[in-house]
Amino acid sequence: MIIRLALAVCLGLVATAPASSGGDLNDGYDGAQAITVSANGQSSNLPVPTGPASRIKDIATLQTARDNQLIGYGLVIGLQGTGDGLRNSPFTEQSIRAMLRNLGIAMEDGRARAKNVAAVIVTANLPAFVQSGSRIDISVSSLGDATSLAGGTLVMTPLRAPDGEIYAVAQGPVFVSGFTAQGEAETLTKGVPTSGRIPNGAIVERQVEARFNDDRALTMQLRNPDFSTAVRITDAINLYTTGRFGKRLASEQDARTILINRPGGISAARFVAEIENLIIRTDTPARVVVDERTGTIVIGQDVKISQVAVSYGALTVRITEQPKVVQPAPFSRGETAEEPSTIIDAQQDDARVALLDGPDLQTLVAGLNRIGVKPDGIIAILQGIKSAGALQAELVLQ
């Protein structure tokens, strides 16, 4: 059923109760709480936004469909002499002894000298609604002083959640994107050879109890919180549910959260599938993001500048040391000495005064380019315009 909306609206869903359907391994929450949603308000009279049209699923997430983090400690074997130095990483030697002992191999007294083993930390995200026997990706990172994990194989490693229970077991060859080449006088390293990934490297052994279909109220969360977007999303959902189920079911709670009552006679999965494909137009605040380290400047679509005059000129100061050697007069008792000589030259490029008036993004960019300065100069100009109160946007410095 396709419904064309006369008013463009935007969806955002946020959580107020702990996750239950997706499972939350960080606490002892074990039941779906009933949430009453008041949805008897009227549609808002907000102006139609100019942002891009997006589906609800692209700008909001279902709070109960959350991931859980897993972590484990293991060993990577089969390295070509790039493993941990057992003198600097004693925990690696202890792990080797414990592993061999579990395999029924007794080591004689004395230190192990293997250089093809590295201790690693294994991390993974356990997706919501995953079942036992499913496979998930894992990340492997060196814990000791190994120089590379290339060519290694992760030995069976249990992965635990914050509740201390084992939910998956990881094992397999490690894929590393970086490399290291070393000679007697030079070393070349590209990427990070001490970390890698194992696609589908872990098997889920224990599933998280899911109660998604038992929830009578759904909580959705906006990825980019905005009051206007949350209200427009609420209006879009209510417009759809009024025609589909005969009543309004959504209610905005704040700039990030929307609560939705699930109607009877339909499963939660099917209901979410219907509303997440509604098309809306997002609304975001005007923002300018500046990264001074790389000289990157990102200007949002709605950024505007009041008319302001800007002058920019670079002052260059050059200091040159030219010491002179002074010789003593003939037949004197003087000594040869060095006399300091410094030349200071100051030069300032011709500064031009330009008028900036940015009623829209295209005019603003054209005005900045007209000044003819480099990105670091534009960053300084934007900061000055903000201090003058002429930049009608948030300036974010990274």
Rank of each mutant, 00 (worst) to 15 (best):
L5R: 01
A6T: 03
A8W: 02
V9Q: 08
A15F: 10
T16R: 15
S21G: 14
S21H: 09
G28A: 14
Q33H: 12
A34R: 09
I35N: 06
V37T: 14
S38N: 09
V48L: 11
T50E: 08
G51A: 01
R55I: 00
K57F: 00
K57S: 00
D58V: 03
A60D: 00
Q63T: 05
A65K: 13
R66Q: 13
I71K: 10
L75H: 11
V76R: 13
I77N: 07
L79P: 10
G83Y: 10
L86Y: 11
L86E: 12
S89N: 15
F91M: 12
T92R: 11
T92K: 08
Q94M: 15
A98E: 14
R101K: 15
R101L: 12
L103G: 13
L103H: 14
L103T: 09
A114Y: 09
V120Y: 04
A128R: 01
R135M: 06
I136R: 03
S139T: 11
S141I: 05
L143M: 14
A146D: 02
A146Q: 04
T147H: 00
S148I: 03
L149F: 07
A150M: 01
M156S: 13
L159E: 04
R160Q: 13
G164L: 11
G164C: 09
E165L: 09
V169G: 02
G172Y: 01
V174H: 03
V174Q: 03
V176R: 01
S177E: 06
S177Y: 01
T180Q: 07
Q182G: 01
E184W: 05
R197V: 06
R197N: 10
P199C: 06
A202P: 00
D214T: 04
D215S: 07
A217M: 07
P225A: 11
P225W: 08
T229I: 02
T234C: 04
N238K: 00
F245N: 00
F245D: 00
K247T: 10
K247F: 09
R248E: 11
L249T: 02
I258W: 03
I260K: 04
I260S: 01
R262K: 09
R262E: 02
A269R: 02
F271C: 03
V272K: 05
E274Y: 01
T282S: 10
T282I: 08
D283R: 10
A286W: 10
A286G: 12
V288I: 15
V289M: 15
V290R: 12
V290N: 14
I297K: 06
G300S: 10
D302S: 12
V303Y: 07
I305T: 12
Q307I: 05
V310N: 06
S311G: 14
S311Q: 07
L315Y: 00
I319Q: 12
T320A: 09
E321R: 13
A329H: 01
F331E: 05
F331Y: 05
F331L: 08
R333P: 03
R333S: 06
G334P: 01
E338V: 11
I343R: 15
D345Y: 12
A346T: 15
Q347R: 15
D349Q: 13
A351L: 10
L361D: 03
L364C: 04
N369Q: 05
I371M: 11
I371F: 10
G372F: 07
K374Q: 13
P375L: 08
P375E: 08
D376M: 14
G377R: 13
I381M: 09
K386E: 05
Q392I: 09
A393P: 08
A393L: 04
L397M: 12
